[in-house]
């Protein structure tokens, strides 16, 4: 295999902040504590983790906007510390949120400006701007000033901007924040399309597990600055939860302890509530056995039950709460 798109070795990053006006006390916040990972060309790689886990910090380092404290990181074979000018030309990014655009300029002028900064060949630039505006559905509002755009429209414009230089590696930090469900779906289609048409490597973060599960080839779970799990969405799901979740909705007369003990034979049991009712979630890879056993026993207190495939979100909650 050729050069990895992203190669990270023992990467750490600390932030220094100081608080207090008269007596300034310096604090060191370790944001990344030794990250190692490799992303192959053309891969869609997901990063998930709680707020403050260090996802954005990692992406800032890989996009050369922030220096590592120690360790190594290479993008397209170039070191992020010394090769930043080379890297910058060949990558692009979206940081979720409304900032980073010229609000007094039109959508079209914003894109054209970035086309000039990235030195998109002049012959292509105008066509490319139009094409991208069409791609993100802003074609009919292209001459309006960005200040009048909704949050989601600004987000789409960010996305268009991130494709202006046909990046070989694209970093998407919460790209779907503020998008309506239809737009979020269009984003997923778009991300897939960018990868399949241009072979672009994509590093993606999102707090929507469903999105991460459908898009990512592999996912790293980042907790408190360290990668705790790294696998395909399927692999993460099976390892943490099993293939299925059986949800038992408990009646008022249910004896939870007895039911837990019984269900515990098939996998891990988690208590929850839904619509004001008590619920037992059984994480299991043997749902058939569980259902058969349930049918033969006369267990009282189960109002009804349902079996579904496990989801990344089930796994995520377990991994984060268990950490």
């Amino acid at each position: 295999m050729g050069t990895p798109a992203i190669e990270v070795q023992g990467l750490t990053r600390e932030y220094r902040t100081s608080t207090g006006l008269l007596r300034r006390t310096a604090r060191v916040i370790p944001a990344l504590r030794g990250i190692t990972l490799t992303v192959e060309p053309g891969e869609i790689f997901g990063l998930v983790g709680p707020n403050g886990a260090g996802k954005t910090t990692l992406i800032k380092i890989l996009t050369t906007l922030l220096l590592p404290t120690s360790g190594q990181a290479r993008v397209l074979g170039y070191d992020v510390v010394s090769g930043h000018r080379r890297i910058r030309r060949s990558i692009n990014f979206v940081y979720g949120g409304e900032r980073g655009l010229y609000w007094r300029l039109s959508a079209e002028d914003n894109l054209r400006y970035f086309a000039d900064l990235y030195q998109v060949p002049l012959r292509e630039a105008n066509g490319r701007v139009r094409e991208l505006l069409e791609l993100v559905g802003l074609d009919d509002r292209r001459q309006e000033r960005v200040e009048g755009f909704s949050k989601g429209m600004k987000q789409r414009l960010h996305l268009a901007k991130s494709l202006i230089n046909r990046p070989r590696v694209l970093f998407l930090d919460e790209p779907s924040i503020g998008l309506d469900p239809v737009a979020a779906r269009q984003l997923r289609v778009l991300v897939e399309r960018v990868r399949s048409e241009s072979g672009t490597t994509i590093l993606l973060t999102s707090h929507y597990m469903w999105e991460m599960e459908t898009l990512s080839d592999r996912i790293a779970v980042l907790i408190d600055g360290s990668i705790r799990h790294l696998d395909s969405p399927q692999g993460l799901r099976l390892a943490a939860v099993g293939s299925h979740v059986v949800e038992l909705v408990l009646g008022d007369d249910a004896r939870e302890e007895t039911l837990r003990a019984w269900a515990g034979r098939f996998g891990q049991v988690v208590s929850a509530t839904a619509s004001g009712r008590r619920l037992l979630q059984v994480h299991t890879s043997r749902p058939d056995e569980l259902n058969a056993d349930l049918a033969t026993r006369k267990l009282s207190g189960i109002a009804h039950f349902a079996t579904r495939d496990s989801q990344l979100e089930d796994a995520y909650v377990l991994m984060v709460e268990g950490a």
Partner: peptide, 18 residues
Amino acid sequence: GYGTIQPVLASGVPLWVV
């Protein structure tokens, strides 16, 4: 304030040019 310095720098163009 607009947060545009980062995307501008990220394009590889030095700040002084802009």
